[in-house]
Structure formats: C-alpha cells, structure tokens
Amino acid sequence: MLKNPRLWIAIVAFLAAGILVKMFFPFSAAAVRASVAIAPEILFFIGGFPVSPTLITLLIVLVILLLVSFLGTRNMRIVPSGLQNVVEVVIEQLVNLFVGIAGPMWTKFFAIAASFFILLLVSNFIGLIPGAGSIGVIKVGKETHTQVVNGQICFENEETHECEPSGIFAIADAPDFLTPISLEHANMKARGEEYEEHGALVPFLRAPSSDLNMGLALALVSVFMTQVYGMQKQGLRYWTRFFSFGRLLKGDIGFGLIDVFVGLVEFISELGKIISFSFRLFGNIFAGEIILLIMAFLFLMLPFPFYFFEFFVAFIQAFVFAVLTMAFMRIATAEHGGEGHGEAKH
C-alpha cells in the first residue's frame, strides 16, 4: 500500500486542496456556530407539537423500514433473490445471535429485540449520511448583527466589522416556521422569561438516536417488557426478586434483612437499566456527531477516518441494545435461586 505512488499523489493533492480551500475560503467556526446543544432544536410547530430535526429523521427512518420490509417480503420465494436475500440474511443472523443468548426462549423476545436492533441501526446510520447535521437553517440571534451579501447571510465580525460568510448552506429569508428555537428557549418564551439567543446552524436532519428521548423510550419498553415476561413466566413469584420479605416474616432476622437489602439493590439496578440503556446510546451517538463536526471545522477531509469509527460505533450501539435486552429478558424469565430453594436446605 505504501509503495503505491498514486496513493501518495492522492494524499498530497487532498492536503494541498485542503490548505488552498482554507486559505481562500476561511470558514469561521465562530460565524457558523454549529449547534451542539444536547436538547434537540425545534424547527417549527405543528399544532403546538414541537418538531425537531430528530423527529423528521425518525419519520424518514420509519418510511425506509416500511419500504424495505414491504419490498423485501412482497414476493417471497423459496430461492431468495435481491432484497429478500438482504432481509433474510439480517433476520437469520439475528436469530442465530438470539438463539445463542436466550436458547429456546428466543421466539418470545425476538420481535422486540430484533426491532430494537433494526430501528437503532438505521437510526444511527442515517445520522452519518453527509449533510445530516450540516445542512440546515441559521438561527439569527438578537445581538448578532447580520446582513445579506450576495444572497448569503453574513455575521459581522466584532473586531474588524467585516462580513464573514456564515456557512455553505444557509437560507437567507427563512420563513417563520423554519426559524429554529431550542426547546429550552421555547419554554422560556412560553413562560414570558427573558432569554438570549445566538446565531447557530440548526440542521434539518439529525440521527434520531442523538435525541435522548429515543434511548429513553426504547429503554422504557425494554425494561417494562422484561418485567412483563418475567411475570408471565413466574407469576407473582417474580416480584420476590425485588421484594423478598419471606424470611424476615418467618423470624429469620439476619438472612431476612440480607434478602430485603438484595431485593432493594436489584430494584435500583433495574431502574438503573433505564438510565444506562438511554444514556449509553445517546452518549455514543451524540459524541460521534460532535467528533465529526469538530473534525470538519479543524481541517478538510479530517472527518474521513472518523466515519469508519462512527460506523462501527453505530453498529455496536444497536447491537448492544438488542443483545442486552435479550440477556435481561432471559435472566428475568429464568428461575432465580430464591428463598424457596434456600429454605429447603436449612
């Protein structure tokens, strides 16, 4: 690879192009003010419902999934071809994975865990499409002096009072419904509080999984369904996992207190799963977005190697979410060595 002179020429040409572009079109990070707000921005309202870039992308993900699943299974053949092949490979790999984790119980948990994986995979990948996170509207703040030069929004440089271009894509006369406003500010506005606004780029599309709501919603489904399956399998006895007063009521104070304490720890860890599920996903995807953004502002072509990494992260996060859900469900449905067995021995 290193002996190939054409590769070196290509690398040098890319670097030279990067330097030239930086010299002649100096995009100022301060001027664009890329949005790195944790809370998704609100692009516009539909009947009082705030629409964020993540929700728009989520709708696109839903349509993609609907189309692929419809076209892939419209005409099922014994000997698969084309899209059916792709769909079958994905499902088969998931089945193999889940059989390995949950054994014969996999059919019960398959629909939810596989849906987690597929939904998250598409959601994570769609945020990596160039343009997602970088094409959007410029939110113009009150205190920022702006003017329009040659159809582009300019921010006035505070020191030189010269006009700096604000970004590659910008909508100069954004209609009212496209004027972005963060949820925090929207709420402050609704309460009639004062708030400061800064000029910032608000993208049209962002990875749905970079919205904490997605991780939280899926984590809630995961943990809730885990309790449901646990109760289906073991009945009310399932709850002795968290609230085991059996031995305490029988007068065995020492072991009884330990049981109660263990149940409490279990209960907290179950609640902790909601937080760990949602923040693991959100943290990884959101951090990936920011890394790509920062690298883009540092130097031309620099995000390129990070895309490989982010693709890996996107896959791993979807995978981990599905596998952990499967494992937790498996644990909840397994007979836990509770007090019943313990007492029989004493």
Binding site: P40, S52, N187, N213, L216
Partner: peptide, 9 residues
C-alpha cells in the same frame, strides 16, 4: 429540559 426530554417527544 436541558436534556431535551419532554412528554410529546
């Protein structure tokens, strides 16, 4: 609010 969690979303 800072985390962007709200009921509609």
């Amino acid at each position: 609010e800072k985390l962007g969690i709200n009921l509609p979303w």
